[in-house]
C-alpha cells in the first residue's frame, strides 16, 4: 500500500505532467512566434517581425475578416433561430418535440466530415456558387442544433404557466416572449451564443468542403500554409489562442464577479 504522503506527491507529479503535456506545445508555438529567425527550435532573440509580416499579408488579413464576419453573423442568426425554436419545442406536442430533437442530433453525432459532404452536395445540386455565402449558411446550419441543445434545459426548468400569466395580465404573445421568457432563459441563450461563436470561429472541416473561389477562413489558411514551417502561422495561432482564452476566461469568471456583486448589494 502506498503511504498517503507518497500518494499526494504522485498526484502532484501526474497533474503537473499532464498540464505540461497540454500546455508546452502551445507555449512553444507562442514563444517562437516572437523569434528573430525562421527557426522554430533555436531562439535568436525577440522580434515582432512575424506579426508585421502577418498584418502586411493581404491573404491573411482577408482570412481574419472572413472568419470574424462569418462568426459574428453565425452567432446572431443561429442564436435567434435556435432560441425561438427551442421555445417552440418546449411548447409543442411530444411527437414533434422528439422528432426535432432526434433529427437535430444528427449533425451533432455524425462526424463533421459527413455533415460537410452533405452540405457540399446540397450546395452543388442547388448550384449555389461556393464562397462566403455557402460558408456562412453552413456555419449557421451546424451551429443552430447546438444552440437549441443548450437553451432547451433552461426552458425545462421554467414554470410552464408563466407565459400564460403574462398574457392574462394583458401582454401580447410577443411581449410575453420578449419580456418574460427570454430574460428568464438568458444564461442559456448566452452560452448558446458563445458556443456558436467559438464553433464557427474555429471551424475547419465544414468550411474546407463548402467554401471555394479563394474564400478562406483562418483555419483553411493554416491548413494550406502549414505544410512548410512558417512562423507567420505561429503569430496567427498565438492571436487565435489569446482570443479564445480571453473569451473562455470571461465566461468562467463572469459568474464569480456577478456573485460578488450580488453579495455586495445585500
Amino acid at each position: 500500500m502506498v503511504g498517503s504522503k507518497n500518494r499526494v506527491v504522485l498526484s502532484v507529479v501526474l497533474i503537473s505532467l499532464i498540464l505540461v503535456f497540454f500546455y508546452a506545445p502551445i507555449a512553444s508555438l507562442m514563444v517562437f512566434s516572437f523569434n528573430n529567425s525562421r527557426s522554430l527550435t533555436s531562439w535568436a532573440g525577440f522580434s515582432t517581425q512575424w506579426y508585421s509580416a502577418l498584418f502586411e499579408n493581404r491573404e491573411m488579413m482577408q482570412a481574419i475578416w472572413v472568419t470574424v464576419i462569418v462568426a459574428l453573423l453565425t452567432t446572431v442568426i443561429s442564436t435567434v433561430v435556435g432560441t425561438l425554436t427551442a421555445i417552440g419545442i418546449s411548447k409543442s406536442r411530444r411527437i414533434i418535440r422528439e422528432l426535432i430533437i432526434n433529427v437535430n442530433n444528427f449533425p451533432i453525432l455524425n462526424p463533421e466530415i459527413v455533415t460537410a459532404i452533405g452540405l457540399m452536395l446540397l450546395f452543388s445540386s442547388l448550384q449555389i456558387e461556393k464562397g462566403m455565402i455557402t460558408m456562412l449558411l453552413a456555419h449557421i446550419i451546424f451551429s443552430t442544433p447546438y444552440v437549441i441543445l443548450t437553451v432547451l434545459p433552461k426552458l425545462r426548468n421554467l414554470d410552464p404557466d408563466i407565459a400564460e400569466a403574462a398574457m392574462d395580465l394583458g401582454a401580447t404573445p410577443f411581449q410575453a416572449l420578449w419580456k418574460v421568457i427570454v430574460p428568464l432563459i438568458m444564461p442559456g441563450v448566452i452560452s448558446g451564443a458563445l458556443l456558436a461563436f467559438t464553433m464557427s470561429f474555429d471551424d475547419f472541416v465544414i468550411s474546407y468542403f463548402v467554401s471555394g473561389n479563394g474564400v478562406k477562413n483562418i483555419s483553411i489558411l493554416v491548413y494550406t500554409m502549414s505544410k512548410r514551417i512558417n512562423p507567420t502561422i505561429n503569430a496567427l495561432s498565438t492571436i487565435l489562442v489569446v482570443i479564445i482564452t480571453v473569451v473562455l476566461l470571461i465566461v468562467n469568471l463572469a459568474p464569480l464577479f456577478k456573485k460578488k456583486e450580488l453579495r455586495g448589494t445585500e
Partner: peptide, 30 residues
C-alpha cells in the same frame, strides 16, 4: 478549467504545434 481550455483552441493550431516539436530538427531532437 485548465484541462478544458485546450479543447477550445483550434484543432489545426494544436496539431501544428507538434510539428516543430517532433520533427527531425525539432525541440525533442535538439
Amino acid at each position: 478549467l485548465l484541462v478544458t481550455i485546450p479543447m477550445w483552441i483550434n484543432m489545426l493550431v494544436r496539431t501544428y504545434a507538434w510539428i516543430s516539436i517532433l520533427s527531425d530538427s525539432g525541440l525533442i531532437n535538439s
